[in-house]
Design a protein around this nucleic acid. Sequence first.
DNA 1: GATGAATGAGGGTTCATTCAT
DNA 2: TATGAATGAACCCTCATTCAT
Lengths: 194, 194, 194, 194
Amino acid sequence: MEINRKQAVLEAARKSLSLFGYKGTTMDQVARMAGVSKGSIYSFFASKEELFDEIMQETISEMQLALQEAADTDQSVFESLHRVLFRVLEFREQHELLAKLYNEMKEVGTPAAREAVVRIEDQILFFVERQIQYAIDTGKMKPCDPKVTAFLFLKFYVGLVYEWGQRNTPLDNESISHLFQFYFGKGLAPVQPV
Amino acid sequence: MEINRKQAVLEAARKSLSLFGYKGTTMDQVARMAGVSKGSIYSFFASKEELFDEIMQETISEMQLALQEAADTDQSVFESLHRVLFRVLEFREQHELLAKLYNEMKEVGTPAAREAVVRIEDQILFFVERQIQYAIDTGKMKPCDPKVTAFLFLKFYVGLVYEWGQRNTPLDNESISHLFQFYFGKGLAPVQPV
Amino acid sequence: MEINRKQAVLEAARKSLSLFGYKGTTMDQVARMAGVSKGSIYSFFASKEELFDEIMQETISEMQLALQEAADTDQSVFESLHRVLFRVLEFREQHELLAKLYNEMKEVGTPAAREAVVRIEDQILFFVERQIQYAIDTGKMKPCDPKVTAFLFLKFYVGLVYEWGQRNTPLDNESISHLFQFYFGKGLAPVQPV
Amino acid sequence: MEINRKQAVLEAARKSLSLFGYKGTTMDQVARMAGVSKGSIYSFFASKEELFDEIMQETISEMQLALQEAADTDQSVFESLHRVLFRVLEFREQHELLAKLYNEMKEVGTPAAREAVVRIEDQILFFVERQIQYAIDTGKMKPCDPKVTAFLFLKFYVGLVYEWGQRNTPLDNESISHLFQFYFGKGLAPVQPV
DNA sequence: GATGAATGAGGGTTCATTCAT
DNA sequence: TATGAATGAACCCTCATTCAT
């Protein structure tokens, strides 16, 4: 039973963090959302900060594992790239959470937590960057700055996947894949530009 | 003299909000930064919330005005589009502030303030959307969903302008303009795809 | 078996009280030190307060018994006096504990517990007082206020026995006895003892 | 007005500490006793600990100053000794407070505060010790261990002055002086004083 | 009007006590 | 019966808001 209760706390905290941020999340609220008492939270986590550190570490570990898996299988460039970005899709909420906390934590976070957020972002970016570089080298992509391109790929994905869905009909994964190919692959200029 | 004092408060509050967010901003800090007493703030604004509502309204008004100006002058489609997006660039910080507060305010903000943030985003998006629709209709752009495209344009801009600069060498406006044309105009696919 | 468990709790509680005081002693700590569960403590004692009341009562009973024994045996005045004070020596720690709790309990203690502490002190003092009065009456001691003298005897003993040892090399019982005779014996003995 | 309020807080805190100890003293209680709000305390002192550090430092400074004054004036041994001990009398409550906190602080106190308590006790003892040593050297006192004797003098005084009065009719300073001379004076004086 | 000292509700945390197992 | 996970009242501290000067 303990594991479920701890998980419930983590779940509630994750949700509250996404909705209200670090300062906006009170232990009372987390306790209420998790259906446990305030005191119980402190039997699992020594402090509010440690609770949120654990959420970060957990999220980061999951993402790292996913990236590793995606990177390990050797396949064609575009497939690999898609796989990685789709992996990121699956972590849409976690990613959003990290980004949010990253911003708020500039002020209050532990150095360790902030480091971790920067690291995971960097890892994703670096992985995408390598795929792009390889695509360029093998002539599958026009020459471009791989760092900037990787950054924009990520923005594009997170935007479509997470933010678009907040105020419009969410897009399914296939649509997102098509849009990705449409905008980045072909460009918007008409074939015979005026 | 009163107007200057009120402006100083607004300026200080805007700065503190950008740096520390809503909860991280204390009235003491705003008073100190503005060089006025805490009591004075309350002679201008009934509450912390009202102060920040006013900042939002002000920001939104400025952005609306800028958009209006950009929209009013009748010019070729791409120029108009660029002008609008460049206008948005000039409000990079305000925009970031709005986004930040929008997230944090989900909890504490007045409904009015939250409405306002949504509205301004919608206005920008709608304006860009119309430009895109017009470009499509006149054959200057490949057929595409104008709503999604407008959304991605904005993400792209905000990403390059604000977020890229947070951890890399910031890009000047010209570079951003070139990158915009490069990615969206031509696409990344090589001319003779393999 | 139950008796042993209860005794273990009492022992642990007494130790923790000596070291950390009433507020500094947690039920968790007592349970850990006694090697029983927290719940078990509550099967023996209705509350933290009752547990410590019982420690007081127990300590007081032991001291009363010792005093009674010392008082019952009829011997010469000085011997009797010494025996009583040496009895008190043997309870040095309990006595210290009582004094400590007495002070801290002013706030939280039950009236009964506080009464008890006052009573035991009074009993000791009264016993010593009688010995002194008898010594005066039989010309073995210079006339003096027996109440004040009893009080000072006790201070003297507790000071030498408990407090001196906290920051200096502790004195053995014989040394203390000598010092007692040295300071009080000679000072109070008449020039021509009867 | 501020000074009075701060003084009121110090006064209330000192009182509460004497009555209930460190843990038994709540900031709410101090605020109530001082007639100020809880928040006000924190405008004078950064934390509960700092408040009590200040009380200790203050007490210690006063006692040091008093000792210095008493020590500086050069007079006959007994007079000087009395003056010092009477000085100590005047600080009866502070002294009691220090001793109490010293015990409780073993667990929770800052190292600085604990150091300070030990230091002041040592200073008093050392001063008395020197007086005694001098008295022995000049034949005004029987040979004895000056350290132990100093310790007992202090116990004697504090006992008579502070503790006796808690449960009996308090003694005035003159009575105490007489008792001191009666118990220690005669006992220690050589039969044929020089 | 301008000031900032004063207030107290609310947040994080601890721990005596309870109760399902 | 014995356990210790769970509870929540109460503690220390912060900060938006008020009001005497």
